[in-house]
Design a protein around this nucleic acid. Sequence first.
DNA 1: AATTAATCATATCAATTTACTAGGAATTAA
DNA 2: TTAATTCCTAGTAAATTGATATGATTAATT
Lengths: 143, 143
Amino acid sequence: MKLSTRGRYGLRAMLDLAIHYDEGYIPLRHIAERQDISEGYLEQVFAMLKKEGLVKSARGAQGGYKLSDRPENITVGMILRTLEGSLAPVDCIAESNPTTCSRYDRCVTKLIWEMMRDSINDVVDSMNLKHLVLEYENIDSNR
Amino acid sequence: MKLSTRGRYGLRAMLDLAIHYDEGYIPLRHIAERQDISEGYLEQVFAMLKKEGLVKSARGAQGGYKLSDRPENITVGMILRTLEGSLAPVDCIAESNPTTCSRYDRCVTKLIWEMMRDSINDVVDSMNLKHLVLEYENIDSNR
DNA sequence: AATTAATCATATCAATTTACTAGGAATTAA
DNA sequence: TTAATTCCTAGTAAATTGATATGATTAATT
């Protein structure tokens, strides 16, 4: 039940973009250096974020990535579900493209999985990048 | 963020034991057949459950496994944490033996992971095997 | 005493996933 | 033209998963 580095790195990278929201396009190299993440790997993560429309890009010199919307409009849930797929603990109750299971109708444990899925989604949808930026500034001022 | 079959099979097997709670020791073969799970694999799962004290065993003919306590005293959380380890989405905030991270003090995303961990634990600790048995009987009577 | 049914213990293994790395092609500002 | 950047695809070592295989040990039954 662990998140992969895609989700973890991706959220940190998106927070980095949110912190530098008013600086225009940010090259991946900067994010990779600040967050100590492999740049090549980040490229793949950002391909997913771009495809989902959470960031926009500018190619060429002085190019880079920026958030496609204001930090308060991008939730942690949008980011994590993009990078990890459904946060449901089992595939049969994923929000989209659930796998089929012959036991579906009489499955009792499904109840648990649905409760877990919903509570996880509630948490990640309740937090957006603006919340995290404020927390970042708060931590930073206490050091 | 998916549970492995250990957790899923394990919960189904424990529910099976709970449904047959008053029948003494149940051999794994019966559970494996009813739940359509590999018996050899279930052995490994039950080794973990036994070590954690959630089931007790009797060797030899007429032996098998039974719950170590009444169904209402065994929560889904106890079972899943035994089989999956901490349900925290990242290792640095596991309840026991958290991994260390150089960014721990100034990590903002940690807030999210802690909220996810707590809400997941709340859900699985709020449900016990008796709840699932009642649900099983309810589903069964409607077929 | 022999047989049978069961847990217990350990080793092995194929398939998949993960977290990258490598190598370039395409694009654009300077 | 050059340098900086995204974009694209392929490869890969290590770890994990979900088993299977083999046999030892234990205990009830015959």
